[in-house]
Design a protein around this nucleic acid. Structure first.
Length: 249
DNA sequence: AAAACCGTCAACCGCTTGCTC
DNA sequence: TGAGCAAGCGGTTGACGGTTT
């Protein structure tokens, strides 16, 4: 029955590219009534579109401060670095690029960067035909292995350390911080399932003092930045004290 | 000139997650 | 505790414009 209902709705909903007049209707509606309850948006605005379609159109195209057009070199570099670290976590990567959407980052990766990187890789492998080239290739392979190990260790570290406070700046309860900090010191397995998960949800994090990262990361309304900045911080510090002296340089 | 091919990107789909009751 | 719903996410599709043959 539920399936029939869904099928009916899908049949009724208009599909395909959005027309300027539809954009205008959606824009006006959201500006008047606010975001959320997208099913109601599609019903009340008179748009014959599904709620999902409205939400995506707003999020990826109509929302204020959307940046469109060419990616800068800085943005491109950041995407490559983030993708190396996080994989296809497009929304996380996009969260690091103001005005860019996950869809845009994903498309950009698939159409530009992926191919670009493949080309670079191919060109490099063709350059290694002679003996010196082979040595160079082996050395580079070693570095890549180091990089891979480094990233694996980084992920293991992230997975094994828990947040001791889950709060945004205005909600921060210092008692909670101290309480949780003690809890972690007492017992390495806290009841948080994953600190990464907590951070993605916008939580602050304090690392236990014995890792020399006794810092609290607190952020405003950009939750993903918390998570990613901590990664960048780790990179900057090279995690020497954590990685038993391993250095990427 | 036109058919075939290719690249790009907006939009859709199906699954997962989180929230409410 | 579980059902139902809304929203988020990543993968995929398809329309369209440009290029090649």
């Amino acid at each position: 029955m539920e399936d029939n209902k869904r099928e009916k709705n899908n049949n009724q909903a208009k599909r395909g590219l959005w027309k300027p007049e539809e954009d205008l209707i959606l824009k006006n509606y959201v500006e008047t009534h606010g975001e959320g309850n997208w099913a109601a948006v599609s019903e009340n605005s008179g748009l014959m579109r599904g709620g999902k379609s409205c939400r995506l159109r707003w999020k990826n195209y109509l929302r204020p401060n959307i940046k469109r057009g060419c990616m800068s070199q800085e943005e491109e570099d950041l995407i490559i670095r983030m993708h190396k670290l996080l994989g296809n976590r497009w929304s996380l990567i996009a969260g690091r690029l103001p005005g860019r959407t996950d869809n845009e980052v994903k498309n950009y990766w698939n159409t530009h960067l992926n191919k670009k990187l493949c080309r670079l890789g191919k060109r490099k492998s063709n350059e290694f035909d002679d003996e010196s080239g082979r040595q160079e290739q082996e050395q580079e392979q070693g570095e890549n292995d180091d990089d891979e190990n480094y990233n694996k260790k980084l992920r293991r570290f992230c997975d094994s350390h828990q947040p001791i406070c889950n709060a945004t700046e205005d909600q921060l309860d210092i008692n909670e911080v101290e309480e949780n900090k003690e809890k972690i010191m007492r017992n390495s397995t806290s009841d948080h399932s994953s600190w990464k998960y907590e951070m993605e949800r916008g939580g602050g994090v304090v690392f236990p003092g014995d890792y020399n990262h006794d810092a609290t990361f607190l952020f405003d309304d950009e939750p993903f930045v918390t998570y990613l900045d901590s990664f960048l911080l780790f990179e900057a510090l090279e995690m020497q004290s954590i990685m038993h002296g391993h250095s990427t340089t």
